[in-house]
Design a protein around this nucleic acid. Structure first.
Lengths: 376, 376
DNA sequence: ACGAATATGTAAGTGCGCTGAACTAACAAA
DNA sequence: TTTGTTAGTTCAGCGCACTTACATATTCGT
């Protein structure tokens, strides 16, 4: 569902629509159905997709040949008529490499199957590597991950800190000293595999959207770690923003009389919400619930205009559960509801993520699944 | 570009993609090109669309038969090769009815051509009509507008206050005492013409996007009148929100210690920014620039999280120019930039609308053009 | 002045993908 | 057994865009 283009193959630039595209679209439609609802018979697929049984049979045949789908036998319970042959996604027919660069001390990666399940993990210590050295480290991690699976690799997804453009070039990532670094292109060139790179908060929201969200309304995931960033899925697709900087909320000023921030402004959201700051505040003593509650309230005040404007369905906080899931979340929830109309807050769910730290990794895989199979 | 479905004809519910759809898509592609860039030769259209000259010829022939497009002769300046035959949109081959229900004392409407130009106006006094009486008034206005043109009517677009769902049902509009009022359906039934209804701020942003905006980045239009509401175009399409309430920012609390609002909360954006409040504040005396500047600053503080989160390209204020275009706008602009990162504010343009009050009317027409011709 | 080059637009034939109708296969109920 | 129902396949046909080929109209070069 994302608009991100794969790197490693060119696509027709214009809006021209060929029959070939229709076929791919229908292929994705079936894969999507199997991905979200599990195994089904060809006849079921025909009914839900609106295509005829003939066409579905043909497409399924193709998918079986490709190994993406396999026949699973007939269902146990029996009704009138010829018993159907269930077909389902062959979750391990192909693997995806997911890489998370959002940690400050290491790079983590995983081999992930088509069902979004992590099959193997691997990580490399960063040891202060920046610039080209950091790029080389990503290459090494990717290569070693590919070597960890005997299945074909559908693609590589990377969640990187900083601003990333649609082509997978990291425009600016201070921690890694990357500026205009064509990470997707260099990985694709070196490994000969389609590569997708996006901001880590953006991959996180994709992960949450695909594997955690309850509906198809607007979803915002706020990543709270060393920094604070957000990713949004609106209308089913990832929001990129004008210059690819959507979700950059960490340095929005929420308290002009607050702490000095590294970014030269005062009272940025990060200065109250980033994990190091939270921990420091708590270590300084005082009533923890009150401290966290106050932060949650400020967060709510900052997010209320966003929630109201976008009429979000779900707002998800992702980060250390022990800090977020409690007074902070409750205060933020309450504060948002106090500051928006009922029509805005009525459909809103505020919660923490259940996917934990894997959300970026799995989201990176979703980037690939979405780009290569049209599944998400 | 909107996702709004027309009322008055059913569309295939599922994602199935037929050849017929491809043809319609390509038809829209050509219309879109002619709409945005003006007349062109069939060969030009082939180049920009990526379709072959053969296909374009065929499609153009169809469009000429339908009367939507006409041949315009050869261009004056001549180059090598057979001189092309320019074709262009026949702007007055078909007319669109646009209706604006956002005023409190009257309903205004217009006959608008395919180029977005108002060809005739008409209005009816509201005289306090609410509920069914107000619906009847809309019917009358629409009927009288249809009678004012001798051209076929492509459809009716309505910008209504309140929350409107994707089917064109007004969920809630207090001023008109409408709740779950199926305005689009009733108009379509009565007049036999496709009808599209959306929130007035949403039609406004469509008008601005199509006839005023400079780029294709995110656009937000803030309508400042009796109330305050916003509409957003993100990724080229109108944002609806989870329950169709996107843009409902008027009752977001910006100053918890502020004035009591009719909505029972305190310090809503409307209590400082709505036109009646602004005029009252100014009438009370004091330095006008300071008053407006202070309001602009508060507005900026409320919008900074939105701008940062969405990485907007354009933020447009629509309302009385004499109030908005000056200290208020400048303060809002400055305040947003002070409160967001450079990467967020760098690509941002903050300005007032040049379309004036017609923006809702013209936007309502865009709703129809977009829905019926795929043009916007 | 006249052929060569260049560009526009049309005509005829091809291939692809989906469809409807008809058919076979496999089961439950009577 | 017979009847009815559902699953999946075969086949002919249709719509759409493509390729190839050509007629047409103009400028450029000599």
């Amino acid at each position: 569902m994302t608009q991100t283009s794969p790197v490693g193959r060119q696509l027709r630039p214009r809006g021209k629509l060929l029959q070939e595209d229709a076929r791919r679209h229908h292929r994705s439609l079936l894969l999507q159905q199997l991905f979200r609802e599990g195994p089904a018979s060809r006849a079921d697929l025909a009914r839900t997709s609106g295509l005829t049984r003939v066409t579905v049979s043909d497409l399924v045949g193709e998918l079986v040949t490709d190994g993406l789908v396999q026949e699973l036998g007939a269902p146990t319970e029996s009704r009138v008529g010829k018993p159907p042959m269930l077909v389902g996604l062959a979750a391990d027919s192909t693997h995806v490499i997911g890489i998370d660069l959002s940690a400050t001390d290491r790079m983590t990666g995983a081999v992930i199957n088509l069902a979004g399940k992590v099959q193997a993990r691997h990580e490399l210590p960063l040891d202060g590597a920046v610039g080209d050295a950091a790029v080389a480290l990503v290459h090494r991690l990717a290569q070693e991950l590919i070597a960890m699976t005997d299945r074909p690799v559908l693609g590589i997804g990377v969640g990187s800190p900083g601003v990333v453009d649609a082509a997978g070039t990291v425009i600016d990532a201070p921690n890694l000293a990357w500026t205009d670094t064509p990470l997707a292109a260099s990985l694709a060139d070196a490994l000969g595999v389609p590569v997708f790179v996006a901001n880590d908060a953006n991959t996180a929201v994709l992960g949450e959207h695909t594997f955690g969200a309850s509906g198809d309304g607007g979803l915002m995931v706020l990543r709270i770690g060393t920094g604070v960033g957000a990713g949004l899925v609106l209308g089913g697709s990832l929001l990129h923003g004008h210059l690819g900087a959507a979700g950059e909320i960490g340095h929005v000023v929420v308290d002009p009389d607050g702490e000095r921030c590294a970014c030269s402004r005062t009272g940025c959201l990060e200065t109250i919400l980033a994990v190091p700051h939270l921990r420091r505040r708590l270590a300084e003593g005082g009533d923890a619930d009150e401290i966290l509650g106050r932060v949650g309230e400020q967060l709510g005040a900052a997010l209320a205009p966003v929630v109201g404007t976008l009429n979000l369905h779900e707002l998800v906080l992702s980060g250390p559960q022990e800090l977020l899931d409690g007074p902070l979340l409750e205060a933020a929830d309450r504060s948002i509801r106090e500051r928006t109309m009922p029509v805005s807050s009525a459909g809103l769910v505020v919660r923490t993520s259940e996917l934990g730290e894997d959300v970026v990794l799995v989201g990176a895989a979703v980037l690939v699944l979405s780009g290569q199979l049209g599944v998400s």
